[in-house]
Design a protein around this nucleic acid. Structure first.
Lengths: 341, 341
DNA sequence: ATTTAGCACTCAATTGGGGAGAGTGCTAAC
DNA sequence: GTTAGCACTCTCCCCAATTGAGTGCTAAAT
């Protein structure tokens, strides 16, 4: 879709003004506020064209125009410039990352909090997949006969613990032995690779201690299946209530219900199309209750490999340039911080 | 406050009807639905008296009456009978508790979920104070030089982990030694008692290994100060949106903001006046945004000692008899389940 | 060939009655 | 003490009229 310079300016004005005011934008307003050097009548003509192209629409005949989803799309793809992040915002972020961060979870939380706070939208953070990260420490402990606690620490700083049922006759010493073997064998290896290695290699070594073999099998299974789901952090949910488009409680309700489902959040964050910041606008979202929301996502990395995603969720009438800038910036800061961890 | 039998009946009718319909109750309605054997006119006279006593009020001149907070209070204290818990509800609860529960956290979550689901209000659960429960297992592990992981398991099934900074020169063996000493010394002793014992007893034993002493001091401090706050589970928050009194978004917003603060929740649950089920109605709550909410709380126990609280939060126009019954019932089930754990 | 001024037109939002309905309080009779 | 009757007071809802913002079209101006 090609637009001449003036049409672009008009579209941009409509998008920007509507984002700011949440009111349909009329030709007069544009002429007054965004000096394009032409009269309202001219702008009206341009607007009629833009509407025909499907970039803007009219809520009703005697109202101004609002951007359609494709209008926002055009704006985001072609017109929008990255907003410059204000000094004080950068300072705020820096300060937030200077608090003591010992675990991955702390980091995730901080990012989420900062992101929602700065953007005034809802923040989503997807923590690194445990399967991808490598093992740093695994330890089995006996809580009481028949019950063991397993703790796993990964290189990305994630800590997981889980209670396991074990055969009653296993002793503390057995568990320590198993811990030792697992540590020796698997340190530095990604959890996803375990299964293969385990079957090939471990079996021979452990056949001597048959009774612990079953335990290990169950253990690995537990870790890899149940807890291989990524943690999602959700923050600033209440920011949604600031938006005039959500003054209707049932709408809020529907959206909140969706956001309560972790797997939905995971999915939202995961279909990030790749390298770049991804923006998903209105009806581009597959969930119906989210069709007047937009999501901006971007990935962060460890050693060059993508390990997680962060994003913000706001109304379609979202401050895209600002939000995109901040999301992008925070992935960088986050990538760096994880490396330090 | 003394009320004759008929006034009681009228008040009860108003409360029950208003709870069910959320509409002011008129004299005709009462005469028709709750056959007191008298005409609307008589009921009107009674209602005038009740209003003078402050038990009911009129939203405006030509409307029916609604209970005032003191009206609800009278109802709860004097008129209300425990609702009988339906068979299918009991069955539902039983089924919920039959899922495998390995950790305290699982249990807390299940209770919260069940409670909010059954009552259709918001559920609050306060997990046992870690300081009160006794130590079952403590283990220190070296993650990397200068960084250790400490895991604590208490008798109530609670599991806590925490990353500690330690002197660089401490080895894996040092940590194991410390773990062993701590386990031997403290097993079965409540965490609150640690500090005293530690100073008196441990010091002499550890003076030989000076370098670990500092560690332990820090460790104990960390555990007792930072993590001594109780975990609070909050569930069914969205149920609030079902209530017609919360069709206004700003009201919702205010309440939700309050509920996001863990310490507020903790406080709400903690000022439970003692043994009995406690009901706090409307303005009896100290937070302004909660002045058209009521909270019902009750405590649960382990070995006769109170270790936590559960509660539901709903509108003042709450189904008290049902809610009280269920809260009470669930504390019993919960106490039992914890014992098993 | 654009651009602009002017004007008629449309539609949502607001305003202001005018019942209808629900419920009350009071009075007088039972 | 209870009840029937009745006037009175509100809210709620519907309807019509008005207002105001904004448009589209046409004809004139550049």
């Amino acid at each position: 879709m090609k637009l001449d310079a003036r049409k672009q300016k008009v579209l941009e004005a409509i998008v920007i003004d509507y984002i700011a005011t949440a009111e349909p934008v009329g030709s007069r307003t544009i002429a007054r506020k965004y000096n394009l050097g032409v009269s309202p009548a001219t702008i009206r003509n341009e607007m009629a064209d833009l509407e025909e192209m499907g970039l803007i629409e009219q809520p009703h005949t005697s109202a101004g125009r609002i951007p359609s989803d494709t209008g926002y799309r055009y704006y985001v793809d072609c017109l929008m410039k990255r907003a410059i992040i204000a000094e004080e915002v950068q300072a705020l972020i820096e300060r937030a990352f200077q608090t003591k961060i010992k675990q991955l979870e702390d980091l995730i939380q901080i990012v989420g909090k900062v992101l929602s706070q700065i953007t005034n939208y809802t923040a989503l953070v997807l923590a690194p997949q445990i399967g991808k990260s490598t093992l740093q420490l695994i330890q089995l402990m006996l809580i009481e006969p028949g019950k063991a606690l397993v703790v796993i620490v990964t290189d990305s700083g994630r800590i997981e613990n889980k209670v396991l049922e074990i055969p009653e006759n296993l002793t503390k010493e057995d568990l320590e032995l198993v811990s030792k073997i697992l540590n020796d064998k698997f340190k530095g290896i990604s959890l996803n690779e375990w299964k293969q290695i385990m079957l090939r290699d471990l079996y021979s070594q452990l056949i001597t201690q048959k009774k612990v073999l079953t335990l290990i099998l169950e253990l690995i299974d537990t870790i890899l299946t149940v807890d291989n789901e990524d943690k999602v952090y959700l923050g600033g949910t209440l920011n949604i209530l600031n938006q005039p488009e959500f003054k209707d409680v049932t709408k809020v309700r529907n959206l909140f219900e969706l956001l309560e489902k972790e797997d939905v959040l995971r999915e939202l964050l995961k279909d990030n199309s790749g390298d770049e910041v991804t923006v998903r606008i209105g009806t581009e979202n597959k969930y119906e209750v989210m069709q007047d929301c937009s999501i901006i996502t971007a990935t962060y990395r460890l050693n060059g490999e993508v390990i997680g995603t962060i994003g913000v969720l706001g109304p379609t009438r979202m401050h895209y340039s600002k939000a995109v800038s901040i999301v992008e910036y925070l992935t960088q800061v986050l990538s760096l911080s994880i490396k330090k961890l």
